[in-house]
């Protein structure tokens, strides 16, 4: 929970991320200090159905394509989103439910740092450490690879997981894009 990411402006609900999270972002002196400020945000809520995995990754890709990422970066983002949403549907909502929803929030900062938070109000994760281990799965071992978190971790710079049993899970994916985007 340290490093440059947590000190900056974070998505609304990642309150536990850092003690400096509530510090107001100074907008004036961005030139010298290179303050990283969120410049765009998007929030979408969709039914917790497996069929919406495709929607979620396409929506995230469309949102971040404004930053002109490379094809690899875009594929990595799509894959990580797909994994996070799959987890919410398969694990959080135990296979999915048309009455429950998954929320995906995306934002990017002028420094090229992108954040994606996928949250569900499902069963939660008992042991996050264990869940993040490669090959760990709660499902049928033959068809579930248990590689979701491993894939997210290798394609994103940082993966934060907040979860409470019976309450839900929030996965925050952070990645720094190799861009010189500034402004707008």
């Amino acid at each position: 929970m340290s490093g440059i990411y947590s000190e900056r402006h974070t998505l609304e609900k990642t309150e536990s991320a850092s003690e400096t999270a509530n510090e107001p972002v100074k907008k004036g002196d961005t030139a010298e200090v290179k303050e990283s400020v969120a410049v765009n945000k998007m929030r979408t809520e969709f039914a917790a159905l497996a069929v919406n995995e495709a929607f979620a990754r396409a929506a995230a890709a469309a949102f971040f394509s404004r930053l002109d990422p490379t094809v690899e970066e875009l594929t990595e983002i799509k894959t990580a989103v797909s994994e996070a949403v799959s987890n919410a549907v398969i694990h959080g909502y135990q296979g999915g439910s048309a009455d429950k929803t998954v929320v995906m929030e995306c934002e990017y900062e002028n420094s090229g740092i992108i954040k994606i938070a996928v949250s569900d109000c499902g069963v939660g994760i008992k042991d996050v450490e264990e869940a993040r281990r490669p090959l760990f799965t709660t499902g049928d071992a033959e068809e579930r690879s248990g590689m979701g978190f491993t894939v997210m971790e290798s394609f994103m710079d940082r993966v934060a997981v907040e979860s409470e049993e019976g309450k839900g899970t929030r996965v925050t994916l952070i990645k720094s894009l190799d861009i010189s985007y500034y402004g707008v």
Partner: peptide, 16 residues
């Protein structure tokens, strides 16, 4: 055009 970790499951299952 796109594969996530479920592709691993598909391959592992067919291998078995």
């Amino acid at each position: 055009s796109f594969v996530d970790s479920s592709g691993i499951g598909v391959i592992m299952g067919r291998y078995k």
